[in-house]
């Protein structure tokens, strides 16, 4: 090997070591803060989905955590809809409850859906009747800005409000996402469980639709019990 090539190798290796050390140091030093930010952001999105936090409200991290503590209760469901405060092999499905005087007012369900590039994480919230959707938020995704990333925009999320997860006969159908405007695709008797898709992002839309249905069907025994009350 010529000395010139060797010199390049040595330089490249030294460069890599220096940069790697620098970045590892920064990533480790800042990790606690970043994790804390992520936690606050998740709680903020649960509160938003549940309608406990307005989009215009500006709160500090502590205020968000305090409100989350005060308003939301984390419980776990079993596959047949029973509830427990502790997670174990039977009670596996996390659920965020908001109670007023002991009665379940509304509840938030965490979901993850596979879009075009990777998993999309978010929450969908229903009212105590087990049927009406009151909110939908996304807190983590890697979709294309302007296309699939529209799923984090208010125009898309606000469409969920007031929709229902059952059809006219009261059977569970979840929320369906059209390709384009839902009124072009759905029959009038399906309007109440249909929303507009994101243009240019059919795979993201269909991914959310598919996984939302899967998630909500796992919680269906619980929702059904609320509907039949």
């Amino acid at each position: 090997m010529s000395s010139k090539a060797l010199q390049s190798f040595v330089f490249a290796f030294g460069m890599c070591v220096v940069c790697a050390l620098l970045l590892t140091g920064a990533a480790m030093g800042l990790k606690d803060r970043q994790d804390q930010n992520k936690l606050v952001d998740q709680q903020k999105n649960i509160l938003k989905a549940l309608g406990e936090l307005e989009a215009s409200e500006v709160l500090t991290g502590e205020e968000i955590m305090a409100r989350f503590q005060a308003r939301c209760e984390l419980v776990y469901l079993s596959k047949d809809g029973r509830m427990s405060a502790q997670a174990d092999e039977v009670f596996t499905l996390p659920l965020y409850l908001v109670r007023e005087a002991g009665e379940i007012q509304k509840y938030g369900v965490p979901f993850k859906a596979y879009g075009l590039w990777s998993w999309i994480y978010g929450y969908i919230a229903l009212d105590g009747g087990g049927d009406n959707v009151i909110g939908f938020t996304v807190y983590q995704h890697a979709e294309t800005p302007g296309l699939g990333a529209e799923c984090e925009k208010p125009w898309f999320q606000n469409q969920f409000k007031g929709k229902r997860i059952t059809d006219q006969d009261g059977d569970f159908v979840s929320i369906w996402i059209a390709k384009g405007a839902y009124k072009d695709e759905a029959k009038p008797n399906q309007y109440h469980h249909y929303i507009d898709g994101m243009s240019g992002a059919t795979i993201t839309s269909k991914g959310i639709e598919k996984h939302l249905k899967k998630t909500l069907s796992q919680y269906e025994p619980f929702s059904k019990a609320l509907r039949e009350q």
């Binding site: 490249a12 940069c19 970045l23 920064a26 990533a27 930010n37």
Partner: peptide
């Protein structure tokens, strides 16, 4: 070394960008 200068420039730039990104995630989430 002249023959790998573009790669070296990219390494410098990429490291600085990751640093900036990490700081933003920690302080301006």
């Amino acid at each position: 070394p002249k023959n790998i200068r573009i790669i070296v420039e990219l390494v410098v730039i990429a490291s600085l960008v990751i640093l900036a990104d990490q700081f933003l995630k920690a302080f301006m989430f």
